[in-house]
């Protein structure tokens, strides 16, 4: 007999990464969340607060955002997620000035802030790394798309909070179509 108080099945056990048996919870993320790429759905299985398994479902229609704008948008979202609102607003201002790889003072200061946050472990290095490469256009978003399997393996093993940060940072690489993502 399956126990389902309130219509929700009880969590089932599974071996977690430490070899201990943990309750497994099914937890959806998206399609609508603050500071989240619109339409992206993750069906996660959690061991405690660690994401053990991810199934990705993404929207069909591409958004056609220029690469630099998408990169600065990702920076603003990551900063908002850690509650750094003033600097998130500055990143959005840079985004709205249609930036290029050659930065004005505002963009440089935001990047210095990112570096400082990475140094103090406020942001995981994996997050600031990918943001830096996106801002330098060292990753071409039109060719380096993350497919579902790559995204899932990127996220698995991280805790819920880091998953939100990683998704926000990798959002420019999640565009469904290669055609609209590149800035040329």
């Amino acid at each position: 007999m399956e126990m389902a108080p309130g219509g929700i099945p009880l969590a089932e056990g599974d071996d977690d990464r430490d070899g201990l048996e943990m309750d497994v919870l099914v937890h959806p993320l998206g399609p609508l969340l603050d500071h989240w790429p619109g339409g992206l759905e993750l069906h996660t299985r959690l061991h405690g607060d660690v994401v053990a398994h991810v199934e990705v479902q993404r929207p069909a229609s591409p958004t056609h955002v220029p690469a630099a704008v998408a990169a600065w948008d990702a920076v603003a979202r990551v900063l908002s997620l850690v509650g750094d609102d003033v600097w998130a607003a500055r990143a959005r201002m840079v985004r709205d000035q249609h930036p290029g790889p050659e930065l004005d003072g505002g963009g440089g200061r935001v990047r210095a802030r990112l570096a400082r946050l990475a140094r103090h472990h406020v942001l995981p290095h994996s997050v600031t790394d990918v943001l830096g490469r996106l801002l330098d256009e060292r990753i071409d978003a039109s060719t380096h798309r993350l497919d579902d399997a790559a995204l899932a393996s990127l996220l698995e093993g991280h805790d819920l909070g880091d998953v939100r940060l990683l998704v926000a940072a990798h959002a420019p690489l999640l565009e469904p179509s290669a055609a609209g993502a590149g800035r040329g």
Partner: peptide
């Protein structure tokens, strides 16, 4: 609040 706001952090909704 502030630097110790992680239990109510935005990155965990």
């Amino acid at each position: 609040l502030g630097p110790l706001a992680a239990p109510a952090g935005r990155e965990s909704a």
